[in-house]
Computed example of a mutant assay.
Amino acid sequence: MWMLVALLAAGTVPAATAAAPQVETRDIANFWIAYDAIRAETDPVRRKALINTLYIGKGTPGLHALMRARGYTDDQYVAAIDAWPRYWASVRPLTGRAFAATAPLEADLATLSRLYPALRPAGITYAIGVLRTGGTTLDDKVLIGAELALGDDSVDVSELPEPLQTRLRTFYASQPFHNNGQNNIHEYIHTQQAEAGDTLAQYALREGVAELVAELVTGKKPDLPLYVYGPAHEAELKARFQADRRGNDYHDWLYNSSNNRFGVSDLGYYVGYRIASAYYAAQPDKATAIATLLELRYDDVQAVDAVIERSGYLR
């Protein structure tokens, strides 16, 4: 894990927490320094230089990993700063809540370690992105998009283009800041898992396992429409998922807007969660069940199919 030497030296974090799970947040402050400088500058060449020297160039390994994972570029940052001033003004004060958002992390990771003793350490970075992820991973790094994960329904999305505006209005209405403990553990779980293969079933089960284990640790599910729509349309979702599961078109199921045949985004998370939950409930040895789910070869279609079959959920 990354040590917060600079923060400890500055007195930001009590020394007693040095051995606890660490969270890197300095990219947030650097972004706002760059933001103010860019807003005061009119020359395009100089503005691009500012985002590079004041933010990207000073970035932590976590910021650079976030940029690689989501394909963020210096031009995208400058364009977003230009296009959405009301958005940035409204989200700015909320990004200072990173440490408050991670207050439960030490206890949650201790719980996770008890559930899964083979847990490997991972670093956690909160940085500002360009609105394409509230949380992702790269290798042993948990990467949180602070502009999304720390938001709430006070964020002004009126300048954003569609369908992003509608999707983020729904997302912020779910009060992601208050779901942040679950989000941290969900992403932490991904650092323990193999990458998925190509099919919908592989991706959905991988996400669903992260949802299930995060719920076991935190006692919470995200307050998102998929957890309202899913139980009310279970039979339809099962039939549709069964028809689509071996394909690699995720448009209706994963990483999507609500502009799909269901009118609700990310229902693949729900189906994956229900499969994982059914599998876990059916196993008498819960520790072995968790280990099986976390260590599953998600790049192996037959291994994923075997867990789905053993869950009994789609029968």
Score class of each variant (00 low, 15 high):
Pro104Tyr: 03
Tyr203Trp: 05
Gly134His: 11
Pro121Lys: 07
Ala110Trp: 11
Ile144Val: 07
Ile128Ser: 00
Arg245Asp: 07
Ile290Phe: 02
Ser257Gly: 13
Val217Met: 08
Gly135Arg: 00
Gly59Cys: 10
Asp156Val: 04
Ile189Pro: 00
Gly129Phe: 02
Tyr269His: 05
Tyr126Pro: 00
Leu205Ser: 04
Val217Arg: 11
Asn259Tyr: 08
Gly181Met: 05
Ile124Trp: 06
Ile308Gly: 08
Pro61Ser: 10
Ala40Ile: 12
Asp139Met: 12
Gln22Lys: 13
Thr137Gln: 14
Ala69Tyr: 02
Ala98Val: 13
Arg114Asp: 04
Ala101Arg: 06
Ile33Leu: 14
Pro21His: 09
Gln182Gly: 04
Thr133Met: 05
Gly134Ala: 14
Tyr269Gly: 05
Ala6Tyr: 10
Gly135Ala: 02
Arg68Thr: 14
Arg68Gly: 13
Thr42Arg: 15
Ala173Arg: 13
Met3Val: 15
Ala122Trp: 03
Phe177Ile: 02
Arg46Ala: 09
Pro104Cys: 05
Gly230Cys: 03
Ile124Phe: 12
Thr60Trp: 04
Ala282Lys: 13
Gly247Met: 09
Ala6Cys: 04
Glu295Asp: 15
Ala282His: 06
Gly312Ala: 10
Leu115Asn: 01
Leu267Asp: 03
Gly57Trp: 00
Leu226Met: 15
Glu211Leu: 00
Ile33Glu: 14
Leu148Val: 03
Tyr227Asn: 09
Thr25Met: 12
Thr60Glu: 06
Ala65Gly: 04
Asn179Met: 04
Phe241Leu: 07
Thr170Val: 12
Tyr229Ile: 08
Val217Gly: 03
Asn248Gln: 13
Gln193Tyr: 08
Ala107Pro: 01
Asp140Phe: 04
Leu164Cys: 03
His190Ser: 05
Pro121Glu: 09
Leu105Ala: 09
Arg169Cys: 04
Ala83Asp: 14
Tyr35Asp: 14
Ser90Gln: 11
Tyr77Met: 03
Leu224Val: 12
Pro284Ile: 01
Ile124Gly: 00
Thr73Asn: 02
Ile124Thr: 12
Tyr269Lys: 08
Trp253Cys: 01
Val91Met: 13
Thr95Ser: 10
Pro61Val: 15
His186Cys: 02
Pro104Thr: 07
Leu294Tyr: 08
Asp139Ala: 15
Arg310Gly: 03
Asp198Ile: 06
Asn180Phe: 14
Ile185Ser: 02
Asn248Ile: 00
Gln242Val: 09
Ile308Cys: 11
Tyr280Leu: 01
Arg26Asp: 10
Tyr279Gly: 03
Ala282Gln: 08
Ala100Glu: 15
Ile124Ser: 00
Val209His: 09
Pro104Ala: 07
Tyr229Asp: 04
Asp27Tyr: 00
Gln302Asn: 12
Val155Asn: 03
Asn52Val: 04
Gln192Arg: 10
Asp300Thr: 12
Phe177Met: 05
Arg240Gln: 12
Arg206Tyr: 00
Gly11Glu: 13
Ser158His: 09
Leu148Cys: 02
